[in-house]
């Protein structure tokens, strides 16, 4: 019975992982390509050719200022990638370090750190981002920083909870008895055991970061014109909803597909890396 359930789960998991990987990989490929090549310069204004419908010359048409939409979408993919990698990267490094530290120290330090995390966590990411950009000026850097700050407590809380459960296990206690210090235990024994879960969390946070960047740019706090980002493209499309709704559809689809891809990848990874499933597979072998 157990085995049947596991097999069912596997069968369901495989397409998740495959589709997710496919979507994310193609998004990465587009972002990488945009670093070297786009069909047109993404900020090149060409007023006589504004609001063109899709054609061979402009696959996705042009926007209200005659800029090539495909080129802007490609650059937007790079912006999303940059925001995701940096914001989640900073959040993960700081958050995991904080979480491990809290779990190793126990007692008041642990409580203090966790309360600090709860406090930070209580501010909605968008609100703190708006606060930051209002103080230091709108721009992609401040948006990234704000999203990173939001990510720190997410990783810290997860790491600490998992680290605590790993630390209670016998092999950690024997390592401790053998004289390993807290840092050694955290690095050599705890980290390998929680890495899979952190990876899954990182994909989820990645998709949240993309949405946050889009929202901030849409509101005018993120990427500034004439640069391109998906959120900004949505915001610029808003004035032309009744004339050229396609202007909003493309960036909207791009955001939806990348977030969907990341979510499916995260789901797939979680299922694939689930230790319970591994155990069953092991038993079967």
């Amino acid at each position: 019975m157990m085995r049947q359930a596991a097999m069912l789960r596997r069968r369901r998991t495989a397409p998740n992982l495959a589709i997710g990987t496919g979507l994310v990989a193609s998004w990465l490929a587009v972002a990488m390509l945009a670093l070297f090549w786009t069909p047109y310069p993404p900020a090149a204004i060409d007023v006589p050719h504004r609001l063109l419908r899709p054609s061979w010359a402009h696959w996705f048409g042009t926007d209200a200022l005659g800029r090539d939409i495909l080129s802007r979408l490609m650059v937007g993919a790079g912006v999303s990638l940059k925001v995701g990698v940096i914001a989640v990267g900073i959040g993960a490094v700081l958050g995991v370090a904080l979480g491990l530290f809290a779990a190793s120290m126990k007692g008041r330090t642990e409580d203090g750190i966790m309360q600090f995390c709860d406090f930070t966590f209580a501010f909605p990411a968008l609100l703190s981002a708006i606060m930051l950009t209002a103080t230091y000026g709108a721009g992609i850097e401040n948006a990234i920083l704000a999203i990173a700050i939001f990510n720190v407590p997410v990783f810290a809380k997860l790491t600490r909870a998992m680290a605590n459960s790993v630390m209670a296990r016998e092999f950690v206690q024997s390592a401790r008895a053998a004289g390993r210090g807290p840092a050694g235990i955290a690095w050599y024994h705890v980290m390998p055991n929680i890495l899979a879960a952190l990876l899954v969390q990182a994909t989820i946070q990645f998709s949240i970061a993309i949405l946050a960047e889009a929202a901030l740019s849409y509101l005018g706090f993120g990427t500034q014109p004439p640069e391109a980002s998906w959120g900004l493209m949505l915001s610029e499309a808003q004035d032309f909803l009744f004339v050229a709704p396609r202007l909003a559809v493309y960036p909207g689809l791009a955001i939806a597909l990348s977030v969907l891809g990341l979510s499916m990848l995260g789901d797939g990874l979680r299922d694939a890396l689930d230790p319970r499933l591994q155990k069953i597979a092991f038993q079967r072998a």
């Binding site: 900020a43 090149a44 204004i45 209200a64 200022l65 014109p225 004035d239």
Partner: peptide, 13 residues
């Protein structure tokens, strides 16, 4: 206003 936001991007370019 649209004349400023849209026009501004053309002016900058």
């Amino acid at each position: 206003p649209v004349y400023a936001r849209q026009g501004g991007q053309i002016i900058a370019a």
